[in-house]
Design a protein around this nucleic acid. Structure first.
Lengths: 213, 213
DNA sequence: CCTAAAATACCAACTAGTAGGTATTTTATT
DNA sequence: AATAAAATACCTACTAGTTGGTATTTTAGG
């Protein structure tokens, strides 16, 4: 280490031990980043913070019982000086905006790479928060469409509706959001289910989450 | 390294780069295990295997487009000598049994720790596959019940029904599985939704997946 | 410009789940 | 043995989603 005192201290909160331990080893040899702990739940993290305050927290959004956004709120209320980077498996516009609204200092996907995570950490302490860019989101949406088109022949509109179904909207709500007749939405939905070989709404929701759609 | 030639070669297949890279660094300093690659999808993995055969593959079950079980089948068909350890976020009895039926050499949860993963890898090459134990599953079910009871006051029966809902069963099907009246299931479901402050089936399914229930 | 695919819209009959009730039986705990 | 919680069961009216049709308009590609 060239300058150990300058290393950014980090705590990782993720309910998957393997993931948390992986990140720990990832930065074990890093001079700029020093992981000083991990937590398997929001509760555990908050307890740890009482005696051990890092510069940055890497916070998984999807955790049992207390979700990441709630934990973010509590941290920012009690320790506004600690930077928090949210980690998520997928891009939900709502969650991203919620994170921003609650003072997160970054938002990263789990399929980011090591360098991107490091940049996010260093960016956070430099008051340079990084969030998924609109343009980039569009690109990944295109990627996804291409993928789904190839395997299931899902069209642009169908994908759009799948997103809205995943967020939990009913056909009625979707029809209002898209300014279309509910019959149109029903038709799209029917086509989606046919293409994915599904038979029920539950099956569709299941598919959307299981494939990390 | 005391004996480099004896190191078990491993390839990791997971669509989350951070996770895969984390595991790579995790065993970077390990003498017994040598990670020789990673893949972000089933397709990428299969392509890699043509020129680069490891002793063990660590295979995430939940991957876009081609799911882990399908990948497992293809691997075992073409390269029966390669050991495959399945990785999953949660314990779905069906998936575990499917993995066993298709010749997997182990099944691990993502909230296992480093040592458990290492044991699974070494166990796999020693023809000593490790799968979630029935007794252990029961214990984790109890843990989960305790957790949900504390936060939401979910009862044993309600938890049982939540499991069946998650798998995609309708009230009718659940009533047949449990030999109970459909009215009973409806009542339970209503109580579940009330306790979790949810208003629709979609919301419930969403909850079940988002909280990694 | 033509054409095929995609998106739009509608109808009717049906199945599944929700909401607001009530009420009995079973099980666990003092 | 008393009691409280949990599990069971039923009814009605209602909302949401499914299925099997049909048909028109828009859009993108050759």
């Amino acid at each position: 280490m060239t300058n150990p005192s300058a290393a950014v201290t980090v705590i990782i909160a993720d309910d998957h031990q393997l993931f948390a331990e992986g990140l720990l080893s990832m930065f074990a040899a890093d001079e700029e980043i020093r992981c000083i702990g991990k937590a398997g739940s929001g509760e555990e993290l908050l307890a740890k913070l009482i005696h051990n305050k890092p510069a940055v927290i890497i916070l998984d959004i999807k955790m049992p019982v207390m979700d990441g956004i709630k934990v973010l709120q509590l941290i920012k209320k009690q320790y506004p000086e600690i930077k928090v980077i949210m980690l998520s498996t997928y891009a939900d516009r709502n969650t991203i905006q919620n994170s921003i609204a609650n003072g997160a200092d970054g938002y990263l996907f789990k399929n980011a790479n090591r360098q991107e995570l490091k940049n996010a950490i260093l960016g956070a302490i430099a008051n340079n928060p990084s969030f998924p860019d609109l343009q980039q989101s569009m690109d990944s949406a295109k990627e996804r469409l291409k993928l789904y088109t190839l395997t299931y022949n899902i069209t642009r509109k169908e994908l759009e509706i799948m997103d809205l179904i995943k967020v939990g909207h009913t056909n009625q709500q979707i029809s209002e959001i898209l300014f279309r007749s509910i019959f149109t939405i029903e038709t799209h939905r029917r086509n989606i289910m046919q293409k994915l070989h599904l038979r029920s709404h539950a099956g569709l929701t299941r598919f959307l989450f299981e494939t990390e759609f």
